[in-house]
Amino acid sequence: MRIIVCVKQVPDTAEVKINPETNTLIREGVSSIINPYDMHAIEAGLQLKEKKGGTVTVITMGPPQAEEALREAISMGVDEAVLLTDRAFAGADTLATSRTLAGAIRKLGFDIVICGKQAIDGDTAQVGPEVAEFLGIPHVAYVKKIEEITEEKIVLYRMMEEGYDVVEAPLPLLITVVKELNVPRLPSLKGKMRAKKAEIKRFTHKDIGIEEDRVGLRGSPTQVKNIFAPERKKERKILQGSPEEQVEWLIEELKKLKCI
């Protein structure tokens, strides 16, 4: 089984502080980690390999220093790592990112693609499903349990707001995973030694055969106008009186808010 895991290197939010004036991350002096949800994706990939055989390839798009994240994944036991790095990739939104990742995944070949449900810096949860669209394969998001997998199909528990769905899907497919799925393993000493020496493959836009204006900032329709923390409205009113009075009052209030 050919297993691809997508990861992202993100700032360690346990250390990160927000500049209250600009509402942006203060990145100086903050160490980088593998996006925590992606750690669960790596673990899922390794467990599938242990059960079904095959190889686990981890890929990321990022600057050259994102190689660190890939080496960490190798120390946990993944077989190979690919870094999508190219000046042309810079400034990508989720669409351009997904197109780029999908290009690389298609080139590598796959039976299953595993992503974390979202990255803790961007928080969009879009890249996984978008990659599936570019690849033209089904996807199941928010997977909390892999019940069964054969060469042709997979049975998954998809986390919902209340309870979960049991989903059967054909392979190849893409899944995004939540932290309830597993406990990511620690690296091993042999893994760390291998990671130190391992060769990391590098792909540019040419390697994956995508035009320069379809990747990075030029391939990104999203324009960020402003970044701000959503304001919390703390206003609240407590209903009082008899049930009839409360209903009347509630209807008035809802009308005022133009809800009805």
């Binding site: 393993r185 620690l186 690296p187 091993s188 000493l189 042999k190 893994g191």
Partner: peptide, 20 residues
């Protein structure tokens, strides 16, 4: 089991027997 998975039990065992 965590120590085993991390190769901690193999530190002082020669490489020809699977250690470090």
């Amino acid at each position: 089991e965590v120590l085993a998975q991390s190769d901690m039990f193999g530190i002082f065992v020669p490489e020809e027997y699977g250690g470090l």
